[in-house]
């Protein structure tokens, strides 16, 4: 019996980790190209509401997922036009994007609050899902969970092993050098930002289609910011983002579980602080001392680029 509870508990870890993983992976690509987009929260909300509305209107989960990715990318395009073409301040634009995305999603979803849609179906992989313990633990999730893990692997491979990935990193490390050897810095950054937006949209729609298949205003509740911290936490490396997302997912579930079981005599709010405090602690640890030299922050992160000549 305890085994079943444990399996269920671990499944909720996966559920709370997946949105973070999507959003953080997307941001990782944007940041490796040198663009700091603080608008994750806004793009996630746009994805959440677009996915939910499409699901409610068409009943097609494929369409809903595509709509979510498109909505995230659309907001990212806005960010790109402002920061890349019009050279606006990235921090301010990112904050504006969060405020805008929050308002836009609440406005778009106003007639959908309280409605429910069928949750994304779990893919029961034949044979594998029948294995006792391991089956329910690893092979009974919906498609997005697998997609997020595959994305982490694909991004790790892309950055490390492909020519395009190298160019992306070059643009983030030294935009002027990349420009002078003929790479289109702005175009590459646009693509990275759009990818980041689409991934944030997917992360958002995981919340409204799978975790809790309903739409609530501001349902991301700060997950966009945690995903942002996760990228720093992971030292801009995809596999560490995966590990970090599951760690944070675990912390969230632990908090929910201990407050449900009433077995810790601490106010729930104090437990809820844990992910935020953990983020600060980890940021401090990785930023300080000898670890700093190993920290791989892209050198051009957040700096605007204007092609010379």
């Amino acid at each position: 019996m305890t085994g079943d509870i444990l399996v269920a508990l671990l499944a909720t870890v996966v559920t709370s980790a997946t949105p973070l993983l999507f959003a953080a992976l997307g941001e990782l690509i944007a940041e490796r190209a040198g663009v700091l987009n603080l608008g994750l929260e806004g793009m996630m909300l746009a994805g959440a509401v677009a996915g939910f509305i499409t699901m409610g209107e068409t009943g097609s989960d494929t369409l809903a997922i595509c709509a979510a990715a498109l909505a995230g990318a659309a907001l990212a395009l806005l960010f790109g036009v402002l920061t890349l073409t019009l050279v606006a301040n990235q921090v301010a634009t990112g904050l504006a994007l969060t405020i805008f995305g929050t308002g836009l999603s609440s406005l778009a979803g106003v007639n959908f609050t309280g409605r429910t849609v069928p949750a994304l179906p779990a893919l029961r992989l034949p044979l594998l899902s029948g294995i006792p313990v391991l089956g329910p633990l690893l092979f009974r999730y919906d498609a997005l969970v697998y997609l997020s893990v595959v994305a982490a692997a694909a991004i790790a491979w892309f950055l490390k092993r492909t020519r395009a990935g190298m160019i992306l990193r070059a643009v983030g490390e030294s935009d002027i050098s990349a420009h002078s050897i003929g790479h289109r810095v702005i175009r590459i950054r646009y693509l990275a930002v759009l990818f980041g937006g689409a991934m944030a949209g997917l992360g958002g729609c995981y919340l409204s289609l799978a975790s809790t298949p309903l739409w609530v205003e501001q349902m991301t509740a700060g997950r966009g910011w945690i995903a942002l911290a996760l990228v720093v936490f992971a030292g801009w490396r995809p596999w560490r983002v995966l590990a970090g997302a599951y760690l944070f997912g675990g912390v969230t579930v632990l908090q929910l579980y201990s407050q449900g079981s009433g077995f810790v005599a601490v106010p729930t709010q104090v437990l809820a602080m844990f992910p935020y405090l953990a983020t600060i602690l980890v940021l401090t640890l990785i930023s300080s001392g000898s670890a700093r030299s190993r920290l791989s922050a892209p050198a051009c992160l957040g700096k605007p680029f204007l092609a010379p000549g």
């Binding site: 806004g42 806005l78 036009v81 402002l82 019009l86 050279v87 606006a88 301040n89 301010a92 634009t93 904050l95 504006a96 994007l97 405020i99 805008f100 995305g101 929050t102 308002g103 836009l104 999603s105 609440s106 406005l107 106003v110 205003e217």
Partner: peptide, 21 residues
Amino acid sequence: PRAATGLVQGMLLFFLLASDF
């Protein structure tokens, strides 16, 4: 809906940042 406030505030900052260009 009340959420329109956030939308208007966000747009204001967007237009401002764009016009700074």
